[in-house]
Design a protein around this nucleic acid. Structure first.
Lengths: 159, 159
DNA sequence: TATTATGTTCAGTATAAACTAAATATTTTT
DNA sequence: AAAAATATTTAGTTTATACTGAACATAATA
């Protein structure tokens, strides 16, 4: 298996990751960047590394890296002696993703609260739908953080 | 507080839900339907109820209800004596949403497996990024189903 | 079977988002 | 300070998707 074949496999891998990311509603190029940063060597890649390997515009790299930094998946690194900004997957990125999820869970709990408040004025109207929703997201809000802590203790206690 | 005010509040509520849903990457109208079905009276609404209250086209209602039925959030109901199809929020909808999440978690675990496989051929290349990802999604895959079961037992054991 | 009510599909339009290329700004080196 | 390298912003294009209206299909009633 030549190095060239491995490179092709990596490109293929990048495609698959970008497809997954795209399905989840995020821009394709953000997925390409994530995919490439998972398998590149070294794990830190410069702005122009990304432009060249992914064959996309500078504008896209600029925007998508900003978005990914913002959402906590990657981080900027300055390498000694290197001029360009470098990017890499952030340690604990995947835990952070789940922690971000908690925010939308919170929104869903809140909206169910709001709905129940409105229905309070209509005694005849069924409230079970919203009560169930409310219970579920309350449960999630209570238990997911515990689970995350459990994971962190298992895997990050050295950090 | 008049019934008319309550109706306005419900419309406002529908807007908020549809905004939330839209942010998560799904069509606005699917969010409007979900929002309306959370607070309407009765909880079952006909095809034309949806068209009228949400002021959208029949085509959209047809497409979006199909999508929502498909994804397990709502269900079709036939009411005795009623001609039209009716829709309502499905019991356990929110649990189902989380269970669907498990599928994408599985995809992410698989993709990290795949990445690691590729990197096996390059002994010098850092694997910690993918190992961490892999560990995390394995953990999620193992523990989330347990959590879901716990919730179901707490709230659905009568079903 | 003819008529009416109901729901789906399809073609076209509108809207929004991704993406690029180029201009501009910023930072680094000489 | 000038020049070169690097990154961001902007305007415009492309592409994708949501959405509508109308034609079509299906099912129910008369």
């Amino acid at each position: 298996m030549s190095a060239d074949d491995t490179y092709k496999q990596k490109k293929q891998f990048v495609e698959e990751v970008s497809l997954l990311i795209e399905e989840s509603g995020k821009p394709r190029i953000s997925g390409q960047i994530m995919g490439w940063l998972m398998v590149c060597d070294p794990p830190e890649q410069s702005f122009s590394d990304l432009v060249e390997h992914l064959e996309v515009s500078k504008g896209s790299v600029s925007n998508m890296t900003r978005m990914l930094v913002q959402s906590g998946l990657i981080e900027k690194v300055r390498l000694p002696g290197e001029r360009q900004i470098h990017f890499r997957i952030k340690e604990g990125a995947w835990v952070d993703v789940l922690e971000k999820e908690l925010e939308s869970i919170n929104s869903l709990k809140n909206i169910s609260d709001k709905g129940l408040k409105i229905l309070k004025k209509e005694p005849g109207t069924d409230k079970s739908r919203l009560k169930e929703m409310n219970k579920f997201y309350k449960f999630a809000e209570k238990n997911l953080p515990r689970l995350i802590e459990e994971y962190k203790e298992e895997h990050f206690d050295q950090v």
